[in-house]
Design a protein around this nucleic acid. Structure first.
Lengths: 215, 215
DNA sequence: CCAATAATTATACGAATGTATAATTAAAAT
DNA sequence: ATTTTAATTATACATTCGTATAATTATTGG
């Protein structure tokens, strides 16, 4: 007897692409880019491996698409959190910090994905520029928020000084993000944004902690 | 004609092991753990691949040895830098921060290795505990240094508050370390330790920047 | 109901990988 | 010198990987 052929349903191309991208991301977070094989990915997406090549010209093509998708998701969470606050500049800065130090931005998955992509990034110049753009964009955004908060507080600083402060605050966020994702059980709920707000507040000499419960 | 057999020299086992570990580390930094094949590693160490299995029971065995070796190297650099300072507690803290934010601790290689091992770490419980020990050890060390510096400054804080400050300062170091290694051209020479000392100084309310040129 | 289309499965293939084992050679011991 | 030992090379093997291509099936339009 011949094994019966597997039943399947047609799905809209965008839907299938997204399924494949999400399956890829979850596996990349678990096992790295090389460890996430096309067979693994197709199995998790509940399709056969041939379908990947139908939607993506190669594995690398899928990886790059997954990277872009993930990055867009992460930045959207933080950026919209700040812009939706209809209050003072200090409140928007606090909301931005808060969102950057809360799930889903802070999570083992996000850190694992970052690490996995960094490895690949060194070999793919295409992904590398996207990465650097994302970083610069994030810091520029933070710089604008800090600048507005300082101006609001009547504190005038030079452009160089502002860049300096943004870099330092960015480092605090990155460091806490890293630790929160790499050692999730080492922090109580709410501890991470609390430390972040207080530390950044110390660095720019503005109290941010009371500004956070406005949303 | 038969191809002539390759000439070779006997080397002390420890020497060969170290060669293999260093070849492995350089390749892991470039291509990740999975990307660093035993053939690659043996080629870079200028031996044939069979030799790896003569010194290590498996590839994973070599990877774990390389990880331990690397971690020991990194922590030694920072710990000795602080303990060798024969001055005030504040100076020792400043030296510790300085060393943590200077090559070879801050380097693309170190960040790449960290990312590469993190991916593997999620699957190997053995490596995972080593990782968590290293982190806890580092933060405890920093906590002691901060505690001593605060005491020296006549500032008394609770144990919980001290832990809180250590976590925040650790985050600053981690974040700057990350950015300095991931985007080396984004920072001028000496900028990273400068930002670190100033930011940590702001957080614990002690000026560290004048304390660094004593060595 | 039938033809056309493309979405999906199924199978195959060469290259690369980790591992295992046998063959050789350099160095040390006697 | 000769034997012994272990360090090193060489070769082989099963498996897995990405990719390519052919075969089928669901869906749509007439």
């Amino acid at each position: 007897m011949s094994a019966e052929r597997r039943k399947f349903k047609h799905e809209p191309p965008d839907r299938r692409k997204l399924d494949l991208i999400e399956a890829a991301l979850s596996l990349i977070a678990e096992k790295g880019v090389k460890g996430a094989t096309v067979r693994d990915i197709s199995r998790r997406a509940e399709v056969t491996q041939g379908l990947i090549r139908h939607y993506f010209s190669s594995k690398e093509d899928l990886i790059v698409a997954a990277y872009r998708y993930h990055m867009t998701q992460m930045t959207e969470v933080t950026y919209t959190s700040a812009s939706q606050i209809d209050g003072t500049a200090t409140e928007r800065l606090a909301a931005f910090v808060q969102a950057s130090l809360t799930p889903p931005v802070v999570s083992p998955r996000a850190v694992a994905l970052w690490a996995s992509f960094l490895v690949q990034l060194q070999q793919d110049a295409n992904v590398k520029t996207t990465h650097e753009q994302t970083y610069t964009e994030f810091r520029d955004h933070l710089e604008d928020l800090i600048g507005a908060a300082l101006k609001e507080a009547g504190c005038s600083v030079s452009q160089g000084r502002l860049r300096y402060l943004a870099t330092a605050c960015n480092a605090v966020i990155d460091g806490l993000w890293l630790e929160g994702g790499a050692l999730p059980h080492a922090f109580a709920a709410g501890e991470l944004p609390d430390i972040g707000l207080q530390s950044i507040g110390s660095i720019i000499a503005i109290d941010l902690r009371q500004k956070v419960d406005q949303a």
